[in-house]
């Protein structure tokens, strides 16, 4: 478990980090919390010539109120996401999902931005962020650019972040007053999601006015369960109506088969877990 030799830089500002990246060439990796990068380097599945550690850039950490949204620093840890009062009040879905990531040690080291840029299909943070229509703020050699969540996740471990760019913040709209729930299915507690469902619903009287559903590990990227969202919009707030809508959960998905279950099982789980997530989010 010894990585190949690499050069190491620990810049203290975003500008400095961008400069280091610009000079480093192609064979460089950005280190956030290191909960994914360090293991793959130790297994020599990755052997970058240079590692740029963002851990000393203070401006990348923390959660700020930004009017109709929250501005979350990419280096904010999962533990902070799970417990931050602004997040708990305005986008509790993020807190609920972050609380299920791995174990307490990983949650204190691993970062929100790191997990999003790593884009593991089984990771817990991408689906809630997609469901919440977050905006990704990237800093690069040509200044800042913004990418919608729908365009950010491009494939298996692949995102819109280009070489030389750094994810600095994630802007998440407030969903104050919405009900939410993250339903995660695993075999053991510290495991990656076999399938998970991120659900937010806005209830008006006895009706579901609006729903946002994100699916974890149902394709190479997180997915929106749009068919379920449409079926739920305006549906009565009953378990039966939710179950009927949830039957569409696997539409458009393309889950993998692995030791934890084949694609057919995952499609089935998506339906069951969507039903459970929406029922919990709606407070039924």
């Amino acid at each position: 478990m010894i990585p190949s030799a690499f050069d190491y830089a620990a810049p203290t500002t975003v500008a400095e980090a961008l400069g280091v990246l610009a000079d480093a060439g192609d064979d460089v990796k950005v280190l956030a919390g290191g909960q994914s990068l360090i293991p793959v380097m130790k297994l020599r599945l990755a052997d970058p010539a240079m590692v740029v550690d963002l851990g000393r850039i203070g401006e990348l950490s923390g959660v700020r109120d930004d009017g109709d949204a929250l501005l979350i620093g990419a280096m904010t840890t999962h533990h902070q996401i799970a417990t931050d009062p602004l997040i708990v009040e305005h986008v509790p879905l993020l807190a609920q999902a972050a609380a299920t990531v791995a174990d307490p040690q990983v949650r204190h080291r691993g970062t929100f931005g790191g997990a999003l840029v790593h884009a593991d299909p089984a990771g817990d943070m991408p689906a809630p962020v997609l469901a919440a229509d977050a905006t990704f703020i990237l800093a690069g050699p040509n200044g800042e650019r913004r990418v919608a969540a729908a365009d950010f996740f491009q494939g298996y471990f692949t995102t819109a972040v280009d070489d030389g760019e750094i994810l600095t913040h994630i802007r998440v709209p407030k969903y104050t007053g919405w009900g939410s729930h993250y339903e995660k299915f695993t075999r053991v507690a510290q495991q990656w999601s076999i399938v998970a469902v991120a659900a937010m619903v806005r209830v008006e009287g006895g009706t579901i006015a609006e729903a946002r559903i994100g699916l974890t590990n149902m394709a190479s990227t997180p997915l929106r369960a749009t068919a379920v969202e449409q079926a739920l919009a305006g549906a009565p707030l009953t378990a039966e109506a939710i179950a009927t809508a949830s039957a569409h959960a696997a539409e458009g998905s393309d889950p993998a088969s692995d030791l934890n279950g084949d694609a057919a099982y995952r499609r089935h789980l998506a339906e069951v877990l969507t039903k459970r997530a929406v029922i919990a989010a709606a407070g039924l």
């Binding site: 075999r187 053991v188 507690a189 510290q190 495991q191 990656w192 030791l259």
Partner: peptide
């Protein structure tokens, strides 16, 4: 060996 790490070889922990 496919279950070559503790990601895939599932040893239960106290929470399980």
């Amino acid at each position: 060996l496919v279950t070559g790490s503790f990601v895939d070889y599932l040893v239960p922990g106290a929470p399980d």
